[in-house]
Design a binder for these strands. Structure first.
Length: 595
RNA sequence: GGGGGUGUAGCUCAGUUGGUUAGAGCGAUCGCCUGUCACGCGAUAGGUCGAGGGUUCGAGUCCCUUCACUCCCGCCA
């Protein structure tokens, strides 16, 4: 038995009544009745109520102890009377009668209270993160994170994956996000980069013959923060497998995620087998490549309707003639919704910078007709055609917008969320996973008009290699895939291109000469020339998985020591200035900045 | 880099149309209280109203500039 505690603070029960114990923990709360004092003593495991009265010579001293002081109490476990039992806590049937005490860690006046349900500014929470982390909700989130990670690690081991560490100091790569750079003392003027992901290393592990690899890998990207994106660093379950096709990766990850989500959440899973949606269809039907499938609304293209003779909605017809498209969202059985419902959505769309959302409702008296401001422009036949394309029924309403493809995707995606919210269509108690597949290998940079890799330059293009038409690079699809859950992008992965000649070819389309590829991806391109197995993998984001499981909207709620939006650690004062000597050793000098 | 929101006591917030000495709860300090579990009661201390400038007889409140935090866009192979 150690000198600090015989039991932790969530251990004593009725059966312990009468025994002498000693507990250590934080003073969570005092209730001082003047001649009788209740103290809630808290540790990682729970709370035990301790009690002392003025008969005890220590009473006055204990009465003065500040909240959050760390103390050790010696005492006797006593029974609580029936009417004083606290059912809220596990130790609520007993209490500890304090005999004497020892202060183990003093506490100054607190900059923020620990025991309250109040929200505080992030600034104060991050500066005093060690106090913030004592609070129940976030304390439990961090424990959840630990449990999720060890569960995943265990599952991966069971599946025969080997866990390896890869370098943190590596080389900068030209593709992707901005790198964090680390100057090299021994190589003046040269820099390491922190890895954006262990991408090349995990492929090299496959070339080295290890067959199945995983790692809970830190990834570093110098990009601006969002609620679901930490600045600087985050963690991925990085995994890679040899001799696999896309479906083999899907099998492993799908089972792993289903097991994990079933174990750590009570929410329902909408699909036990993740639906697969092509990138092109995702953009068409949801307006985004990270659709929230809890939302049942679907976007349809009805451009063709506006080429018909019997449709007289001239504004749209004119735009369609000049290349615009028309897409629509059907809402089920909304014919009796008040006018304000429709107008609010139209007004909302205008607030988003769109030209609004036109709408009509399909009704039937003798014949089918459209009711609403633009209803008169549609004939019975054209409405029947719309109903065929969109699966709309009588009593349903149709919201439509006309614009270029990209603008339409943007506004319809937002409208889909907005309308579902207004109609309360999203079941918050559900997880809806899906795969997004068939990503294009290349895309056109809107600014420069140049062809660039749309995702991972190491992905394998689809189809027979001899048959690929490199003249039309934008039509080449890749074995590249994402997992999306509730509209959150959880991971992306690919079957890799392990054929050097094909790699050079694809890089040349994106504007890289063979020499550049050899320089920038030296380790990997070289390795692929010495017997590389076909391989592929994926990397689900750990932080976002825990965020979903903890039902949090902000990634800092599941991160122990996060940085703020400006990538500063307010507790550790990072980043900070360094002294002249350090700079000199690194062969660096600082430009004078205006201040 | 751009747009929105917020900034008043240690913490969370209120503060009307610009008008007397800027308030409350929690926390702190002091006093009373033997069954509370958000204990109760009374008192005291605690303020550069984020900062700077302007309008005005008068600014927490209106205007301009600026800073911090946050959400979003850009960015995130």
């Amino acid at each position: 038995m150690n000198k600090y505690r015989s039991h932790h603070c969530n251990e004593l029960r009725k059966s312990d009544v009468g025994s002498k114990v000693f507990l250590s923990g934080w003073i969570n709360k005092k209730r001082d009745h003047g001649n009788l004092l209740f103290i809630d003593l808290r540790d990682n495991y729970g709370i035990t109520q301790c009690i002392i009265d003025k008969e005890n010579p220590n009473f006055l001293k204990i009465e003065k102890i500040q909240l959050e002081t760390v103390v050790k109490f010696n005492g006797k476990v006593i029974n609580r009377t029936e009417d004083t039992i606290n059912k809220e806590i596990d130790t609520g049937e007993i209490e500890v009668e304090i005999e004497n005490f020892e202060t183990l860690g003093v506490c100054n006046e607190l900059p923020m209270p620990v025991f309250t349900d109040q929200e505080y500014s992030e600034e104060i929470r991050l500066k005093y993160r060690f106090l913030d982390l004592r609070r129940k909700k976030i304390h439990e989130n961090i424990i959840l994170r630990s449990n999720v990670i060890s569960f995943i690690r265990n599952e991966m081991n069971k599946l025969g994956f080997l866990e390896f560490q890869t370098p943190i100091l590596t080389s900068s790569s030209p593709e992707g996000a901005r790198d964090f750079l680390v100057p090299s003392r021994l190589n003046p003027g040269k820099f390491y980069a922190l890895p954006q992901a262990p991408q090349q290393f995990k492929q090299l592990i496959m070339v080295s013959g290890f067959d199945k690899y995983f790692q809970i890998a830190p990834c570093f990207r110098d990009e601006d923060a969002r609620a679901d994106r930490s600045p600087g660093e985050f963690y991925q379950l990085d995994l890679e497998m040899s001799f696999v096709e896309q479906e083999d990766v899907f099998d492993v990850v799908e089972k792993l995620l289903i097991n994990t989500f079933k174990k750590f959440s009570r929410k329902k899973l909408m699909y036990e087998k993740f639906p697969k949606i092509s990138y092109a269809n995702a953009l068409l039907n949801y307006g985004t490549d990270k659709p929230d499938l809890r939302n049942p609304l679907i976007i349809n293209d009805i451009t063709e309707i506006f080429k018909r003779e019997d449709v007289s909605f001239e504004i749209f017809k004119k735009l369609v003639k000049s290349g615009s498209k028309v897409r629509c969202i059907v809402t089920k059985n909304t014919k009796d919704k008040p006018r304000s419902f429709f107008d609010n959505i139209d007004k909302w769309a205008k607030d988003q910078g769109a030209s609004g959302l036109a709408y009509f409702t399909i009704e039937k008296e003798k014949d089918i007709y459209a009711k609403g401001p633009i209803g008169k422009f549609f004939t019975k036949d054209s409405l029947e055609e719309i109903m065929k394309i969109t699966q709309a029924k009588i009593g349903d309403s149709i919201f439509l917008a006309c614009n270029t493809k990209i603008e339409l995707e943007k506004i319809t995606a937002m409208a889909r969320d907005k309308i579902a919210k207004d109609l309360n269509l999203v079941d918050e108690n559900t997880f809806a996973f899906c795969w997004i597949i068939d990503y294009p290998m290349f895309e056109k940079d809107e600014l420069t008009n140049k062809i660039k890799f749309s995702h991972n330059p190491f992905s394998m293009p689809q189809g027979d290699i001899d048959q690929i038409n490199f003249e039309k690079p934008l039509e080449i699809l890749a074995y590249q895939y994402d997992i999306v859950c509730n509209g959150v992008e959880l991971s992306s992965g690919a079957i890799r291109n392990h054929i050097p000649e094909l790699m050079y070819k694809l890089f040349s389309i994106a504007g890289y000469e063979k020499k550049q590829v050899n320089e920038k991806f030296a380790g990997m391109i070289n390795a692929l020339s010495y017997g590389a197995p076909p391989h592929g993998g994926i990397a689900p984001g750990i932080d976002r998985i825990v965020m979903l499981l903890a039902n949090e909207k902000n990634i800092r709620e599941v991160t122990m020591f996060p940085m703020n939006q400006n990538a500063q650690d307010l507790m550790m004062n990072a980043p900070s200035e360094v002294n002249e000597n350090q700079l000199k050793e690194l062969n660096l000098s600082l430009k004078k900045t205006k201040k």
